[in-house]
Design a protein around this nucleic acid. Structure first.
Lengths: 245, 245
DNA sequence: CGACTACTTGACAAGGATCAAAGTTGGTGG
DNA sequence: CCACCAACTTTGATCCTTGTCAAGTAGTCG
């Protein structure tokens, strides 16, 4: 049962940064991550997933946990009528496939040619049994995943399109920041359709909303896939519902 | 970082039922739960929470994990502008407060006078360190919580009011079933406002939708707080998006 | 260069939100 | 036991946002 890109670390050194564990803003902790316990991760077992190919699908036996070495993935679930809910995106360094269910709860599709490193579940679980710190790391990774899911819920629960799109941009920015990248420029590795299905709106609304945000000077659209977040504070205010469009 | 009512069990005997781990329907596994490891749970440390009182609030230090002995709780988070997202409801037998963050990520408010039994986090974590089965149980409890959150996301992502309300009713029915209660009669321990904030719609829409479902013979409203789910199969079809209002 | 795909924009309609009011329910005190 | 009150729920009317359908534009790949 799992989906999120989280680090599997010992947790012993977590939260030494100044960021409080429960930050005041809804998005502050999103995707906060601690360094991986690298020695636990195999350097073999790499897999290359072609553009738009699936690493696994909903219902597949859960055999491995994967770390994204390069590229990006989209984690989604389908409704019977074909509608799709994007649960999350996984970028370089993220770990996906955690969880105890015997089958994957989401499908994982590459947004571009993507390289992952797989760690067999059995290996991970055996390690967790003998090493308390790994067990703690797993527990904390899942905990963070739950918080992320909660914040996604906050985003989808009665909120307007502008707030949703702003939230999405802020999330990407924060994840950039967590990986040491610029936080004011986000590269959209996913299509408008992926964004729409993540936010529970249509691609037309995504497009219109981006245009509107640009019109108000909150963002600049450098390329289709590259946005500059001018006025981050306004975006955050929008995302948190403190301000109207 | 945690919210959900899940059992903390050894996990060793899980999934012996005929229910596949990854069921075909989106809602099938929701709230599936295994028997608790009762001997791990203290019989002391009980607390009575008055009607509408809070067991804890978002941001409080996370000191205990609680099991609901009697009554029901509403777990929610607030947006800055006062809007509220109900993350989940906790009923008798559910465990809430799991997660590794040092502070609660949700507020827990009693829907009625509620009795809980608290287990100090430190005790639980110490037990998990020495007992692998408890550690596994925690891991599985969080995993299930993530699946529940994902299904909640599916419910809130682009779906109509009727589908949301149907989903809610099916969830309550399944949770009844899991606790050995009748699955065709659900008792709403929460207000319309709580339901609305759980589903991301307004109380008026909840009310209208229930009336509409009654008009189509999918439910009967015996009292305000008691619904009979006639035609469960249609409700499930609605919840899964296989059918229109 | 042309065909294909993805994105943007426009016009219109549908579904919910909002505002307003009437109807229920449950609790309190006479 | 009943009457009244406050809180909650239902219903109605209208407005607004977003979804839908359709057309046009831009970017990509052969």
């Amino acid at each position: 049962m799992l989906t999120r890109h989280q680090s599997v670390d010992s947790g012993a050194a977590r939260n030494q940064s100044s960021t409080p564990d429960h930050a005041t803003t809804a998005l502050a902790r999103t995707h906060a991550r601690a360094p991986l316990v690298e020695q636990e991760w195999p350097t073999s077992n790499w897999r290359l997933i072609a553009d738009k190919a699936h690493l696994y699908s909903e219902g597949d036996p859960r055999t491995h946990v994967y770390k994204v070495m390069h590229g990006a993935l989209c984690l989604y679930r389908l409704l019977e009528d074909g509608r799709r809910q994007v649960i999350d995106f996984a970028f370089e360094g993220d770990v996906i496939g955690l969880g105890s269910g015997r089958q994957e709860s989401c499908s994982a599709q590459a947004l571009t040619a993507t390289q992952v490193s797989g760690l067999p579940m059995a290996t991970l679980m055996a390690a967790a049994k003998t090493n308390t710190r790994i067990a703690e790391g797993l527990y904390e990774a899942l905990s963070r995943e739950i918080v992320v899911a909660q914040e996604h819920l906050m985003c989808l629960g009665h909120r307007g399109a502008a707030e949703r799109v702003a939230t999405f941009l802020v999330i990407l920015s924060r994840r950039n920041e967590a990986r040491g990248l610029a936080c004011d420029v986000v590269t959209l590795q996913m299509s408008r359709s992926d964004i729409a299905d993540f936010l529970g709106i249509t691609i037309e609304t995504v497009s219109r909303t981006l245009t509107k945000l640009r019109g108000q000077g909150l963002i600049e659209i450098e390329q289709i896939t590259t946005l500059r977040l001018t006025r981050m504070s306004k975006l955050v205010a929008l995302a948190e519902g403190r301000v109207r469009v």
